[in-house]
Design a protein around this nucleic acid. Sequence first.
DNA 1: TCTCTTATCGAGAGTGAGTCGCAATTGGGT
DNA 2: ACCCAATTGCGACTCACTCTCGATAAGAGA
Lengths: 132, 132
Amino acid sequence: MLSLLRARGGRATASRRILLEVLFDSHDHRSVEELAAAVQSRAPDVHLSTIYRNLEELEELGVIAHTHLGHGPATYQLATSAHAHLLCERCGRRYEAPAELFAGLARAARQRYGFTIDPRHFAILGRCAECA
Amino acid sequence: MLSLLRARGGRATASRRILLEVLFDSHDHRSVEELAAAVQSRAPDVHLSTIYRNLEELEELGVIAHTHLGHGPATYQLATSAHAHLLCERCGRRYEAPAELFAGLARAARQRYGFTIDPRHFAILGRCAECA
DNA sequence: TCTCTTATCGAGAGTGAGTCGCAATTGGGT
DNA sequence: ACCCAATTGCGACTCACTCTCGATAAGAGA
């Protein structure tokens, strides 16, 4: 993965290695603030703006992806573990929604508008059973 | 609608009347910036923070609703004309999606998680035919 | 290993979209 | 007309980024 970076003229710097390691260790989404804390516990001088830039770079590379869960800040994860979400707008409860839930919508959107949905980028808001 | 406000202990102030008139005149979503410009063309002293507070108040009343179209700022419209959107994340093209497109997802989410979706609050991102 | 080009970095200022605290104003029930 | 809580204007503030800039350091080539 680091050589993928190099192949594009990029460089495998310490802050990128650590960021990638942190992302591999996180088996859930992490906000930038959380990622920064984890990276900085190992290399205190890594600046927040570097984390943002590296996340952007790695995302362009297709290695990671970000998701918006409601109104909060973006969350990042490995591209391989990206998935859709249902998020309760009252209590914040979150469900990970498998792609097949969106099969009907995906088909209808394609037929009617030629539109290909990516349900993983923004969560679907609504109410959970308790809050409904 | 103003008496609905009063019934709740609220007041029908000039800025609220004008804001509502602007919203009734807009037959599309409007960003806060646009709404502010329209309101201020009629009453220049209305402050942005007042617009924000009034939008919040009217939304609590159920009269208006806001929607997030991708990464941009929120957009507001009358609650009666709220609907779901498909938004191309490359070119920004927007489709208004009728509720029946979401019927399958709504049913599946309810059955599997007891979750009631509100597909109008956040747009569904993806790629339009041209950008796919 | 040394050099050199330039990608990347840390630091800090800047931006967009709201949100908050406060004193002055005003709607509207009485 | 009176009164007082709701509302307003204003500015300061927060949050989540984003940009600029001079310094640093990867890593390709010698």
